[in-house]
């Protein structure tokens, strides 16, 4: 359990490197690296959220707010004040962390549906601020003129270059998070999830751990928001509304919430389903989306990462029967 299996991670890394090269050769999936950029940005948020929900057992319906904070801090400081984008990205993460502490300390004392409502309320309040503070944020029409990213004169100005940048971040965060889970901290988190009373009796400072994970997830969401803003060179509030927070939950549920791999798979699937694959259904798209979601929840309660286990179960049954 404690050993990190290296092979899947290596395959994952190779896949990331090879994917754009392959898609370039096949016209039908030529635009997939562009979609993968968003899948990567969403993965950053879902990795944090998965740690918060799957491991620390806390629900958050306000994660879009941190995503928005990262995007708006970066956008305002670069477009309005002309500061360096990388520096603004870090400022965004610090702001998100501070907000997460202020919201997290009182909220994470709440339980179940009360916590869900508190985070939901927080998300809506932040959204209203993005919408109303027109002088700062440009209001619902959004902000444009956000610069792109470049490093030592190398500009990340094409889809492929940005793809590698985003997935470099995702991969680093992924490896770091996996290591955290396998460490003492990770064990403590799992203990909290199974029984708060028992873990606090064991000397784990339960509420501090929860806040730390909440802050970590906020920092990741903020990083994702900055990457989004620098890629689109434009942001508007509706990207960071309540429905995006719900979409994140759906990603986690679809991928499987007790596994960091599930966070990435879920982000990937929802990105492609909602931006590309369901286009075919036109007006019925939403219905198909809802039905897929419901079927997964009913038949794959562990999410997509549960499939190998189910298959293994079926296979073993067959073997023992035969």
């Amino acid at each position: 359990m404690l050993r990190i299996r290296k092979l899947p991670i290596i395959i994952f890394a190779l896949f990331i490197i090879v994917f754009p090269l392959v898609s370039r050769l096949i016209p039908a999936i030529q635009n997939y690296p562009d979609l993968m950029i968003f899948a990567g940005i969403y993965s950053l948020i879902t990795i944090g959220l998965s740690l918060l929900m799957g491991y620390a057992g806390q629900i958050s319906l306000g994660q879009a707010a941190f995503y928005g904070i990262g995007a708006y801090v970066s956008a305002i400081l670069t477009a309005t004040y002309g500061l360096n984008p990388w520096f603004c990205m870090v400022i965004g993460m610090i702001v998100a962390a501070i907000v997460a502490v202020l919201v997290g300390v009182p909220s994470l004392k709440l339980k179940g549906h009360y916590l869900a409502m508190a985070t939901l309320a927080f998300g809506i309040i932040v959204f209203i601020i993005f919408n109303e503070e027109v002088e700062w944020t440009g209001g619902p029409d959004g902000m444009s003129g956000i610069p792109g990213l470049s490093l030592f004169g190398f500009a990340f100005d094409s889809v492929e270059k940005y793809y590698y940048l985003v997935w470099f971040f995702v991969f680093s965060v992924f490896v770091f998070t996996i290591n955290v889970i396998q460490s003492r901290t990770g064990r403590a988190l799992r203990a909290i999830h199974s029984s708060e009373a028992a873990s606090s009796a064991m000397g784990i400072n339960v509420s501090r751990f929860k806040v730390v994970v909440f802050v970590y997830s906020a920092i990741l969401a903020s990083l994702a928001g900055s990457l989004y803003a620098y890629y689109l060179n434009f942001i508007n509030p509706s990207t960071f509304d309540l429905f995006f927070s719900i979409k994140l939950l759906i990603m986690i549920a679809l991928g499987g919430m007790h596994d960091i791999w599930g966070a990435i798979i879920g982000a990937f699937l929802i990105t492609f389903l909602s931006f590309e694959w369901l286009h075919f259904f036109e007006e019925f798209e939403v219905i198909v989306y809802g039905v897929i979601l419901l079927l997964v929840i009913i038949f794959l309660p562990q999410g997509m990462v549960g499939i190998p286990k189910i298959l293994k179960g079926l296979f073993n049954k067959k073997v023992s029967n035969g």
Partner: peptide, 14 residues
Amino acid sequence: VLTLIIATIAASII
């Protein structure tokens, strides 16, 4: 909590 919330969200989408 999560699966039930998602199930009711899915239902509301449908």
